[in-house]
Design a protein around this nucleic acid. Structure first.
Length: 195
DNA sequence: TAGAGGATTGAT
DNA sequence: TCAATCCTCTAC
């Protein structure tokens, strides 16, 4: 069952980031289907410095964060990696959840071809890698997650004992906001990013 | 319009 | 530890 719009439109992006663990992301790009369970997420809000939309700063790049929750925010990072976020909350409340790691469920051979490798090992363990494996790029920025190209399927929640909350990665410039425990991952799962 | 830097990754 | 690589934002 596809996650309903009201799931994304809740006001607490941190709670959504936690609930997204275990859900299944499905992409259908150029007729090729890939699917994966969400293993790792990070929450971002206009209220804190780690966010592109901090202090409600709106730019051409991040304007999609300001629309109604339930769409994709895809942007280029470090000149070479597409990062995939799920926009949450209501119009004007810029919040989003970065998807950092997936566990492949279907379409593994498509992923291997896209990654130009033969080993399934850790090919979706990281925000830049999973977008490549799933065929997500900036042309999908702003697309609805109810659209057939990208959808999210509901699934049983992860046991709360298996969920680890910790600090986000790569946002040292955010000062004390970098210390917020807004990164969530499934404990002991081999697909979590980094080592 | 120039310059700095980034929600990363993989090789050294 | 460091380079790859290019888009975005800020300041001039």
């Amino acid at each position: 069952m596809i996650l309903a719009p009201d799931f994304y439109q809740q006001p607490n992006v941190v709670a959504i980031a936690r609930k997204l663990l275990g859900k299944v992301l499905i992409t259908r790009i150029n007729g090729e289907v890939t699917a994966g369970r969400i293993i790792e997420t990070e929450a971002y809000s206009y209220k804190e410095r780690g966010c592109h939309a901090y202090n409600n700063k709106q730019t051409p790049r991040n304007e999609i964060m300001f629309v109604m929750g339930g769409v994709a925010y895809v942007y280029l990072c470090y000149g070479m990696h597409n990062l995939f976020n799920i926009v949450t909350n209501k119009t004007g409340k810029a919040e989003a959840v970065l998807i950092r790691a997936l566990e492949p469920v279907a379409g593994q051979e498509v992923m291997l071809a896209r990654m130009n490798t033969k080993k399934l090992n850790r090919i979706t363990s990281g925000p830049g890698k999973l977008t490549r494996a799933f065929g997500i790029d900036r042309s999908l920025n702003g697309i609805s997650l109810l659209n057939s190209k990208i959808t999210l399927e509901d699934a049983a929640p992860i046991n709360s004992k298996k969920i680890v909350a910790t600090t986000r990665i790569g946002i040292d410039y955010a000062g004390t906001d970098a210390l917020l425990p807004w990164r969530f991952y499934v404990k002991d799962n081999e697909w979590v990013s980094k080592w």
